[in-house]
């Protein structure tokens, strides 16, 4: 491993060197799959003459492991809020060049100074959303703004509940449900969490990422799901609704950052400034169906998204939302242990 890491950058350097002569300018974006509007990319390429290529990843852990190894050739990455501090701490990303990124003020006021990147020195919002519950209201017509939907499920939903296998999100929801804070290590709360989860699991049919079809075609009657995906499901089947658990629910934000060893940092900074423009952010939102965190982007969003209950958090529930956080190892170890017991 040590040996190969030494050689790879050299090979890349040769490769990148040769392509640099061929193409004018190029940036390589490393992003979650199915998350970048092709229309928006095309617009960027037309406006700047910089060509864009995109490589997918499927988890924050995959992304950071690959970048740590070096020799990746990427310029931009989109880590979730809980991972942003790790990227900064480990020196994997570089501060934004305010000479090129001039429109940081376009960021909505509430996201300008987030706890994971104070003062937005390194990152700009790409998309944000929440993890809540999706419910097929034809199966259950009670209150859906509660994590009881999956932690103490009503009779009608039992046996038809899916939970996304995102340990951190599920533990966050379970901790709030038990009256504790995210990343809690309070033994009493942990005990309640474990007991609640163990009991609730009997009513779950699966822990799957699932697809929108799973909800619209009746495989799942309810489940833990993301707001943007629930929006897509609702557009296909109006019975599906999104609930914001009043006990507390995780909010996440994926952020665009420029890598410390970017091949083409100037072009990358141009891209960062490009996605700060409301028009482009709106275009991107129309594709991934999440809010962008850019002020004025609504004007460019599809009409069905602007007032969508999945996008606009009801005022009385907004306070229950809290950013996810990467828990310290000791806590994460306990969570993994509970999680393994749950799925044994």
């Amino acid at each position: 491993m040590q040996e190969t890491t030494g050689r790879l950058p050299l090979a890349w350097a040769v490769l990148m060197g040769s392509t640099a002569f061929a193409a004018a300018e190029e940036i390589n974006i490393y992003n979650w799959g199915n998350y970048t509007s092709p229309e928006m990319v095309e617009k960027f390429e037309e406006e700047t003459g910089i060509s864009v290529s995109i490589t997918d990843y499927d988890s924050n852990d995959t992304a950071i492991a690959r970048i740590r190894r070096g020799g990746h050739g990427f310029d931009i990455v989109m880590p979730s809020n809980s991972y942003v501090p790790i990227w900064i701490e480990e020196g994997l990303v570089q501060p934004l060049d305010t000479g090129i990124v001039t429109d940081l003020d376009n960021i909505e006021a509430q996201w300008r100074d987030p706890e994971f990147d104070p003062g937005r020195e390194y990152s700009v919002p790409w998309a944000w959303g929440s993890t809540g519950v999706a419910v097929n209201t034809s199966s259950y017509d009670g209150d859906i703004h509660t994590s009881d939907i999956f932690l103490d499920p009503p009779e009608e939903l039992r046996g038809n509940i899916n939970v996304v296998p995102e340990m951190v999100d599920v533990m966050h929801l379970a901790a709030n449900h038990a009256g504790g804070e995210r990343c809690t290590d309070d033994p009493e709360v942990l005990r309640t969490m474990r007991d609640t989860l163990t009991e609730a699991r009997e009513h779950w049919i699966s822990l799957d990422y699932g697809t929108i079809d799973s909800y619209t075609e009746g495989d799942f009657a309810a489940g833990v799901y993301w707001n943007g995906d629930t929006l897509r499901a609702r557009l296909a089947d109006p019975d599906i609704a999104y609930g914001y658990p009043q006990e507390g629910f995780p909010i996440w934000m994926d952020n665009a950052m420029v890598l410390a060893d970017a091949q083409n940092p100037d072009a990358a900074m141009q891209f960062i400034n490009f996605i700060l423009q409301p028009e482009n952010a709106g275009m991107n939102s129309n594709f991934h169906r999440f809010a962008s965190g850019i002020a004025g982007a609504e004007e460019y969003m599809d009409p069905e998204m602007i007032d969508a209950p999945e996008i606009v958090i009801p005022e009385d529930l907004a306070g229950a939302g809290e950013f996810t956080r990467t828990c310290p190892s000791e806590v994460n170890d306990i969570y993994t242990q509970i999680w393994s017991e749950l799925l044994q």
Partner: peptide
């Protein structure tokens, strides 16, 4: 993972958990 629905892990899913979300 796809057919079993992840309610019960097999060994490879447990291994993946440790390299991913388990961070161990």
């Amino acid at each position: 993972r796809l057919l079993g629905g992840g309610r019960n892990m097999m060994l490879s899913n447990l291994i993946e958990l440790q390299f991913g979300q388990g961070r161990n």
